[in-house]
C-alpha cells in the first residue's frame, strides 16, 4: 500500500467531504452496486486526489473531475480483478451468505431496478445515472465518461428506451 501523505490538502479534503454522499452513490453505480468495491474505489480515488496522483486542472467543476476519477478507478479495479481472480472470486462469492437486513418491500423494488440496470450496457447505465440521479447534463456526462457528446447522447437515448422496456 502507498504511504499516506503526512500533509494533505485540507481545502480539497473539505470539498470532497461536502460531495461525499453523491460520490459514494456514483461509485456504487460504477461498481454494479457492490458496496465493498464502491468503498475501495472511492477511497482509492480520494487518495489519488489528495496525494497529487490525480490533479484538478480547473477545466470542469470539481464534481465532474471527481466523478471522472472515480469512474476511471472503478474501471481499473474491475480490470485488475478480472485478471487476478480468473473467476475464483465469483466462486467464493457464491458461497457467501447474503445480507438481508432491510425491509422486504424496499429491497424487492430496489433489487428489481438494479437487476434491470444490470441488463443495460455499462455506458448506458452510467449516463442514465449521471443525468437522472446526479443531475448532470449529457455534455457533462460525456466528459465524465470520456466519450464524445454524440456517443453519450446515443447511450442516453438507447439506455432510456431499454430501461423502460426492462421495467415494464
Amino acid at each position: 500500500m502507498r504511504e499516506r501523505p503526512a500533509l494533505i490538502d485540507r481545502a480539497l479534503a473539505g470539498e470532497l467531504a461536502g460531495i461525499h454522499p453523491a460520490s459514494f452513490a456514483w461509485a456504487l453505480t460504477c461498481c454494479g452496486f457492490d458496496r465493498q468495491e464502491a468503498e475501495d474505489v472511492l477511497q482509492t480515488a480520494y487518495l489519488k486526489m489528495l496525494d497529487g496522483r490525480a490533479r484538478f486542472d480547473g477545466r470542469s467543476s470539481l464534481k465532474t473531475w471527481l466523478f471522472a476519477v472515480v469512474r476511471r478507478t472503478a474501471v481499473d479495479l474491475r480490470r485488475r480483478r478480472w485478471v487476478a481472480s480468473l473467476g475464483l472470486e465469483r466462486l467464493f462469492a457464491a458461497f457467501a451468505p447474503a445480507s438481508s437486513d432491510e425491509p422486504a418491500m424496499e429491497s424487492d423494488e430496489r433489487a428489481r431496478v438494479r437487476a434491470a440496470l444490470a441488463r443495460l450496457s455499462r455506458r448506458q447505465r452510467e449516463v442514465l445515472d449521471l443525468v437522472f440521479y446526479h443531475d448532470f447534463t449529457v455534455e457533462e456526462a460525456a466528459r465524465i465518461m470520456n466519450v464524445s457528446v454524440g456517443a453519450a447522447r446515443v447511450h442516453y437515448q438507447r439506455g432510456k428506451a431499454r430501461l423502460r422496456g426492462e421495467l415494464r
Partner: peptide, 19 residues
C-alpha cells in the same frame, strides 16, 4: 424514480473513516 429506488437505503460510510 427507478434510479432513486436503485440508490435508496445506501448510506455512505463517513468520509474520515473511509480515508
Amino acid at each position: 424514480r427507478a434510479l432513486e429506488a436503485a440508490h435508496r437505503g445506501e448510506t455512505p460510510p463517513p468520509f474520515g473513516t473511509l480515508l
